[in-house]
């Protein structure tokens, strides 16, 4: 969907952040030595934090898209706590923190204020973790969608309440061990529930734009932020951001793990306009779901002391269902 790679071969195409062989005009925002660094050095996120990376990726792209005229509301969560321990701030954007549950409503207010002041050029982003978005902030978010407020809401999904010590959220995947879903008993880890896809719920609101993205695909993420900022009304972006601490993976493997999530089909990457899917990121190097699961100790009980074939098969079914539902494999390749 974003793929200059299909038409050109320049050693790495656009898979890498930059490419000295390509024209700078097709370069990513992150490859620019003058990028905004919206979330600056000195923040206190853990080593290899996917959320810190995802936030910089998204906000730098947004700052570029709207020429710096941006205000941001932030929900409580790691992103807020590691970036602004008083008296320091890591933000190089106009940034406002309020509460855990109400980022969407605060942003709605900011958008209204801008409208009243006649500053339609100043754009509004709300951002938060999965807990703040899919659980406690969900009512505010749904209201913002329903009213079609002129806000882009970005959820950085690390699949649990990380800031308070890795408690389960409704975005926590089946079988994952968290502080509240221990790997104990005959049903270790998180339950195999109904699941809760806020991107699909957002689509059900019929809002102008919904997208999912991952820190493993920078170009796609930047494209989606750009696309969202080109549209008015309520927009939603759900970004997959591994948390090395909570997931139990090496700090250097954040992007690798995110990539496996996308390539296995467990985290489907797609976009939708006005409730209809308009694009999907195709799987490039298909992997079994267990290749992804194996990288994280939160799933270790699926492999040790012996393989839990039944649950592994169930998780593979989730991946297969995503692949089929969103068409993540090129049609010819399926046959």
């Amino acid at each position: 969907m974003t793929g200059p790679n299909r038409v050109r071969f320049y050693q790495t195409g656009t898979f890498t952040v930059g490419n000295r062989l390509l024209d700078v005009s097709v370069g990513s925002v992150q490859s620019d030595a003058e990028r905004n660094n919206s979330l600056n050095s000195g923040h206190r996120a853990c080593q290899g934090c996917g959320e810190a990376l995802g936030a910089r990726y998204a906000l730098d792209a947004a700052m570029r898209a709207v020429d710096g005229r941006l205000v941001v509301a932030n929900a409580t969560g790691c992103l807020e706590v590691f970036s602004t321990p008083y008296p320091e701030s890591s933000w190089r954007v106009a940034w406002l923190h309020s509460l855990f549950a109400n980022a969407a409503s605060v942003a709605t207010g900011m958008a209204a204020a801008m409208k009243v002041k006649g500053r339609r050029d100043v754009r509004v982003i709300a951002q938060g973790g999965d807990g703040g978005t899919v659980d406690i902030g969900f009512a505010c978010l749904s209201g913002m969608f329903e009213r079609n407020d002129d806000v882009l809401y970005i959820c950085y999904d690390n699949e649990a309440y990380m800031n308070t010590g890795v408690q389960r959220s409704s975005a926590t995947p089946a079988a994952a061990r968290t502080a509240t879903t221990p790997a104990a008993g005959d049903q270790p880890g998180n339950v195999f529930g109904q699941g809760k896809s806020v991107p699909l719920i957002a689509m059900a609101h019929g809002i102008p734009y919904v997208g999912t993205a991952s820190v493993a695909d920078l170009r796609d993420l930047e494209y989606k932020v750009g696309r969202a900022m080109a549209i008015r009304g309520a927009r939603y972006l759900h970004v997959h951001v591994p948390c090395p601490l909570g997931w139990g993976c090496p700090t250097g493997d954040t992007i690798k793990v995110a990539r496996l999530a996308a390539e296995s089909g467990l985290f489907p990457i797609f976009e939708a306009e006005a409730g209809e899917v308009t694009g999907r990121r195709l799987i490039r190097r298909p992997v079994r779901a267990e290749e992804y699961l194996k990288t994280q100790t939160r799933f270790a009980h699926l492999f040790n002391p012996k393989r839990d074939e039944a649950r592994l098969a169930l998780i593979q079914r989730i991946a297969d269902r995503n692949i089929e539902r969103f068409g993540l494999v090129e049609q010819e390749a399926v046959a």
Partner: peptide, 19 residues
């Protein structure tokens, strides 16, 4: 080969791109 990956993927902006 100057792919900018290190510059891009650091969550701490601790890689400086020299030009």
């Amino acid at each position: 080969f100057e792919c900018d990956n290190c510059f891009g993927v650091c969550p701490d902006n601790a890689v400086v791109k020299l030009e």
